[in-house]
């Protein structure tokens, strides 16, 4: 059974089908890419998986445990955490304090204060924010806040992390730095990632497999090469 198994998930917002009968299987240790034009339903899928939005039909199973119906905090404590496309730092808390909250609550078990400090330091290190640890979350640049989102998800001890457009709004230098960071996370940690990215080059480089959504429906699935050569994807995605 897949590490993350999404079975026939649909989500209706009034008259709009944001997701229609989506199936998706993520294997342990891979980077799974999620692609699709604006409004395709990528963020909605993240919200359904993380427990922020209840699916109209279908269910989500993570590591053998059914997530559907659980609160986001419960989902996080089971080891699955997402970041936000529109960043949501704890703006008035320091960067280190942002991560401390995640370390204190994210794992679902009580850590000692030494363990918490170690988790915080490790998460700072992982995204190169160590020298900004005492700044307020709100004082970081957009690139810094995107990194803080990632670090906070890491600090929860999540085994599967969903990154929603962590490169959007960054300049080319910041994008290549972020790519380096993500490559490093992939090689150094045994984590599983689901990533959404409009920066196609980065998505192709990072992902092991890619699923393409269009208007809430699955239209293609395969390796980056297969997706690159897919007619329907080229048509829908590149106009």
């Amino acid at each position: 059974m897949a590490f993350l198994d999404i079975k026939g998930v649909s989500k209706r917002f009034g008259g709009l089908m944001a997701l229609s009968d989506v199936d998706m299987q993520v294997e342990k240790g891979e980077i799974f890419g999620l692609m699709g034009a604006n409004g395709a339903g990528k963020t909605t899928l993240f919200s359904v998986i993380a427990g922020h939005v209840a699916p109209t039909t279908g269910e989500v199973v993570f590591d053998g445990q059914r997530l559907t119906g659980l609160s986001p905090s419960r989902v996080c404590r089971l080891g699955l955490c997402r970041t936000f496309q529109i960043v949501r730092p704890f703006a008035g808390l320091s960067v280190a304090e942002n991560l401390r909250v995640a370390a204190l609550y994210g794992s679902g078990r009580k850590l000692t204060s030494t363990e918490v400090a170690a988790v915080v330091d490790d998460a700072l290190e992982a995204v190169d924010l160590t020298d900004r640890r005492d700044l307020d979350g709100g004082q970081l640049t957009l690139s810094g806040q995107k990194r803080l989102e990632i670090a906070r998800a890491l600090a929860t001890g999540a085994r599967l992390v969903m990154l929603d457009e962590v490169m959007a709004g960054l300049n080319p230098t910041e994008i290549s730095a972020m790519l380096t960071t993500l490559e490093r996370l992939r090689t150094e940690r045994g984590l599983t990632f689901v990533i959404v990215e409009h920066v196609i080059g980065a998505l192709m480089t990072l992902s092991d497999r890619i699923l393409v959504l269009d208007h809430g429906e699955r239209i293609a699935f395969g390796t980056p090469e297969e997706i690159g050569n897919h007619d329907r994807v080229a048509e829908v995605y590149f106009g």
């Binding site: 703006a91 008035g92 204190l104 009580k110 998800a153 929860t156």
Partner: peptide, 25 residues
Amino acid sequence: SRFGAGLAAIREDEVAAETVGVPVT
């Protein structure tokens, strides 16, 4: 305390707090 850290996170951003495991309610 840990409790207080969770409450501070709730003050800053309730949705983000919930997302990183804080049982907000």
